[in-house]
């Protein structure tokens, strides 16, 4: 037996396009943990991989679509959600997952997010929130905390950030959860739940950005940021999303929305069936 035979394959290897490795992400970045949790969720649910589509926008996490071994599409900046809407309506058999970043989904793509949530399109949005635009070198975005230093807030951020789970709840999402990359089991459980639930879901993943945002803001190494997550994360059940703050001393995490409501696709199919039935009724009169 030679050494090669003894080498174990990563249990999730079949879910990745091996030829696209190594990935582009920095050491200590939370994107790997996010992707791993997603792949574990797929593995545990034993979903038919031919029926999964992963769609991303632009940014560091946007490359995730290219790494997963399912049908995938890397759209323009901010447009993953409307693209996903077209995919899901055109082929309702598909499970459609959007994996993208806070800037992509909530700044340039913010309008699409609220409208897809309002319509309750059956797509799952997993958002890597690292509080800044990492790919372009660390500019502030719609989730950057007040006073934070970024390359375009050299005197400190004076814009109030979005509370993403509150936005999702107000917009009509049937499921909204927030975890940091520390709570990997809960994150995976949330992804599994969203994948099995009908309707628009948001899972926000607070994610370290050790090379850029965390360094600029002197938050320490990736390990130190994870320790900070451990120190300040507060898990709550059915907490008011409006009060789900993210500050230096408190990160409120948990499931904030978990309700039932017919999806857009279901209502569309019901309406279409009714229209056809009525027409056929008239034709036989």
């Amino acid at each position: 037996m030679n050494n090669k035979d003894l080498m174990l394959q990563h249990p999730l290897a079949k879910y990745l396009r091996q030829e696209r490795m190594p990935h582009i992400w920095c050491e200590g970045c939370g994107n790997g943990i996010l992707l791993n949790s997603f792949l574990e969720a797929l593995d545990e649910l034993q979903l038919d991989l031919d029926n999964i589509v992963v769609i991303s926008g632009i940014g560091c996490i946007g490359r995730a679509a290219g790494y997963v071994n399912v049908d995938s599409f890397h759209t323009t900046h901010g447009r993953a959600i409307p693209f996903a809407t077209g995919v899901k309506l055109a082929n309702p058999q598909l499970k459609v997952v959007v994996i993208s970043g806070d800037g992509d989904l909530f700044a340039i793509g913010g309008n699409h997010f609220i409208h897809a949530a309002r319509r309750n399109v059956d797509i799952k949005v997993i958002c890597a929130n690292n509080f800044n635009y990492g790919m372009t070198g660390g500019q502030y975005g719609p989730t950057t905390p007040l006073e934070a230093w970024t390359t375009t807030t050299p005197y400190g951020n004076i814009e109030h950030p979005f509370n993403l789970v509150h936005l999702a709840a107000a917009s009509g999402a049937v499921y909204a959860a927030r975890w940091t990359t520390l709570q990997v089991r809960r994150l995976k459980a949330s992804i599994k739940k969203a994948l099995q639930k009908e309707g628009f879901s948001l899972i926000e993943v607070i994610s370290p950005c050790p090379e850029i945002y965390d360094r600029y803001n002197k938050l320490g190494t990736a390990v130190e940021v994870m320790k900070w997550f451990k120190l300040v994360s507060e898990v709550h059940k059915a907490y008011d999303p409006a009060k789900a703050v993210i500050t230096k001393n408190r990160i409120i995490i948990g499931e904030f929305v978990d309700i039932e409501k017919p999806s857009y696709g279901r209502l569309l199919r019901e309406m279409t069936a009714q229209v056809k039935e009525d027409l056929e009724g008239e034709n036989t009169k």
């Binding site: 759209t75 409307p82 809407t85 077209g86 899901k88 309506l89 309008n111």
Partner: peptide, 16 residues
Amino acid sequence: EDEIASIAAVIGASYA
């Protein structure tokens, strides 16, 4: 919600 979303959805539907 706008024409940006319209064409994005149309590309998605075409790929589906």
